[in-house]
Amino acid sequence: MKILIAILLVVSGFAFAEDPSPATNREIDQLFAALQGSGCEFNRNGSWYDAQKATEHLHRKYDYLLGKGLVTTTESFIERAATGSSVSGKPYLVRCGGAQPVPSRSWFGDKLKDLRAHAAGAGKS
């Protein structure tokens, strides 16, 4: 009986997974825009892709995860979609200009901090 209750609780948690809030959707859209407009390259499984291809790939992953109810915050988007390959387990890298590549987790995390700092500054006016 306890096992049945545990299974029902887990299943109900998936059934009632929340959609991202409007603020989260806005932040994720801004992260996609930042990547697409960055001119940076994106390494996935050992191959480099331009920002457009990277954005397209991450959009597909994001849409899949949304359908599963696995993205509810901007941080969960970064962690589950933008950090590494779900197939190979290899981390994604971002390389901008002549700079050394950085883990995409760091790149997206820094962009998110910048977006939030900008939004907080804009709210003080």
Rank of each mutant, 00 (worst) to 15 (best):
M1R: 15
I3Y: 15
L4Y: 15
I7K: 14
I7D: 12
L8C: 14
L9S: 12
G13P: 06
F14R: 01
A15H: 06
F16N: 13
A17E: 08
D19L: 10
P20I: 03
P20Q: 04
T24G: 01
N25H: 12
E27V: 06
E27L: 10
I28S: 02
Q30I: 10
A33Y: 00
A33D: 08
L35M: 14
Q36M: 12
C40W: 05
E41K: 13
R44P: 02
R44E: 03
R44W: 04
N45M: 07
G46D: 12
G46Q: 13
W48M: 04
Y49C: 00
D50F: 10
A51K: 02
A51R: 04
K53E: 13
L58F: 10
L58C: 04
R60C: 10
K61H: 12
Y64L: 14
G67S: 06
G67I: 01
L70I: 07
T72I: 03
T73L: 03
T73D: 06
T74G: 01
I78T: 00
E79C: 01
A81H: 10
A81G: 12
A81Y: 08
A82Y: 00
V87T: 07
S88E: 08
S88G: 03
G89R: 08
K90T: 07
P91A: 02
Y92V: 07
Y92F: 14
L93P: 03
L93H: 11
R95L: 09
C96I: 05
G97S: 01
Q100W: 01
Q100C: 01
V102R: 10
P103W: 02
R105T: 12
S106P: 00
W107M: 05
W107L: 05
G109W: 01
D110E: 15
K111L: 11
L112R: 12
L112P: 09
K113V: 11
K113E: 11
D114M: 11
R116W: 07
R116Y: 06
H118I: 11
A120K: 11
G123S: 09
G123W: 04
K124C: 03
